[in-house]
Design a protein around this nucleic acid. Structure first.
Length: 197
DNA sequence: AGCACA
């Protein structure tokens, strides 16, 4: 920078370069949803790896299944992409009051697996019987309870093992019941395990 | 987005 500062670039007008550091760098702030991964383009490595691969795995003829060259260049690139995960930096200036909400949401999304499931987005006429019809078919089913707490009903379903609850959650996620009037049910791990009798 | 029962 200093090497060029003050250099004349327009001899007629005598204009002179003026260079200084920007007050902040120009990289855009990462939006929360855009993911924690930093993409590093290392395509310059591709040629060596291509050679390696051709020598070992490629029969020599052009393979229609395999896209050419650069894109899926090699496994080392992929490994690198996964390991350069950048830290999520909490900016103290912008996140002071929002930090708690953000944290709670994060915890909820990554809810810890539990053998009790929380089921929401049920229709107003959903009955415990109707839900039990579906859920009790799954191995490890323990018990089901529906609460209606004034508004829409929610349900809690308990299983013997976390793995069995997980299976039900993924299996029935977003699925419709005869009584559903607002889309499929929404299933999460419950925040606390159902109390057994 | 909404999480009770003891």
């Amino acid at each position: 920078m200093h090497a060029l500062n003050g250099v004349k670039f327009d001899p007629q007008a005598g204009s002179v370069l003026h260079i200084e550091l920007a007050r902040s760098n120009s990289t855009r702030k990462r939006k929360p949803g855009s993911g924690p991964y930093v993409v590093i383009d290392n395509r310059t490595k591709a040629s060596t790896n291509d050679n390696t691969r051709e020598a070992s795995t490629d029969d020599g003829d052009s393979d229609p299944e395999e896209p050419a060259g650069d894109d899926n260049a090699d496994s080392s690139n992929n490994d690198e992409l996964q390991t350069v995960k950048s830290d999520t930096v909490l900016d103290p200036e912008h996140s002071v009051p929002a930090a708690n909400e953000q944290l709670e949401r994060t915890i909820n999304e990554g809810a810890q697996p539990c053998s009790t499931l929380f089921i929401a987005n049920l229709g107003p006429n959903c009955t415990e019987y109707e839900l039990k019809e579906v859920i009790s078919k799954y191995p490890g089913f323990n018990m089901l309870k529906i609460r209606a707490k004034g508004g829409m009903p929610v349900a809690f379903a308990d299983f013997e093992e976390i793995e069995q609850a997980t299976k039900v959650m993924t299996d029935l996620q977003s699925s419709l019941l005869p009584s559903s009037d607002r889309g499929g049910m929404h299933i999460e791990y419950a925040r606390s395990k159902m109390r057994k009798h």
